[in-house]
Computed example of a mutant assay.
Amino acid sequence: MAAPNPDVVVVTTTFDAESKARTLAAAVVRERLAACAQVYPVQSVYRWADEVQESPEWRVDFKTRADLATRLTGFITGHHDYDTPEVVAVPVVTGSSAYLAWVAAETTP
């Protein structure tokens, strides 16, 4: 494992349909705002409209450079149909040197 590297983050969002999640994932990678995206089903429990809601969603995790997180957040919110989409970035504490270098190489400088 490499030393701690705050230069890479995982940015997460969710959608109510797999097709929407996959479409955004492809657009983000095509724009080189992330090196890759993982799309998978989750079951979400949350408070909305003053009630506890539960619904199936599709989560997308984007691997990108920390300096692209703000641009990626804007891209996600600009292409999202939720009133208040989840968009959070979590720093990568450590990882393989080769993988972290690949993330940096595959994203827009």
Rank of each mutant, 00 (worst) to 15 (best):
P85M: 13
C36R: 02
E18N: 13
E57W: 07
A26C: 11
V60G: 02
H79F: 10
V10D: 03
P41F: 03
E31I: 06
Q43W: 10
V90Y: 07
S44T: 13
T77I: 15
W102T: 03
T84M: 13
D81A: 11
V28T: 08
V29E: 11
T14S: 15
D50P: 09
R47G: 15
V10T: 10
W102Q: 06
D61A: 02
R30I: 10
R32T: 08
R32Q: 10
V88Y: 00
T84Y: 07
V92P: 08
S97I: 05
A69V: 10
V42W: 00
Q53L: 09
V42C: 09
A27H: 08
I76H: 04
A17E: 10
H80A: 09
H80Q: 02
T64L: 04
R71C: 03
L24Y: 09
A27V: 01
V87Q: 06
E106D: 12
E31R: 10
D67K: 06
P4N: 03
D7F: 06
G95C: 04
R71E: 05
A2F: 03
A34L: 04
T73G: 05
P109K: 12
P4T: 07
V8M: 11
A3R: 12
A34C: 07
A2S: 15
A35Q: 01
R30C: 14
S55Y: 03
V9P: 01
A21E: 14
T108L: 10
W48D: 10
T84Q: 10
Y46C: 11
T70I: 08
V39T: 09
D50I: 08
L24H: 08
A17R: 15
K63V: 06
L68D: 04
Q53D: 06
R47N: 13
A3F: 12
I76K: 10
D67I: 14
A21M: 15
P85E: 03
L24T: 05
P85G: 12
P91V: 04
A3I: 14
D16E: 14
A17P: 06
W58S: 05
A69Y: 05
D50Q: 11
V60P: 02
V8E: 06
R30N: 13
P56T: 08
T107D: 04
V42H: 04
S96E: 01
W102I: 05
T84K: 00
V90N: 04
V92S: 08
L68I: 00
V39L: 02
T13C: 15
P41H: 01
V92R: 02
Y82P: 05
V10K: 07
P4H: 06
F62W: 01
L72M: 08
D61R: 09
V11D: 05
A2L: 14
P91N: 05
Q43H: 12
V92Y: 08
V92D: 08
A49N: 15
A37R: 00
L72P: 07
V60C: 05
R65V: 07
C36H: 04
Y40V: 06
V42R: 01
L68A: 06
T12Y: 07
T12W: 02
F62L: 01
D50G: 14
V103F: 04
Y99L: 03
A34S: 08
I76M: 08
T77M: 09
P91A: 10
F62I: 02
A104D: 07
Q38R: 00
A105K: 06
T107K: 03
R47W: 13
E54K: 00
R65H: 05
V9I: 02
D83C: 11
D50L: 13
D61S: 06
A17I: 00
T14C: 15
A3V: 12
A25P: 02
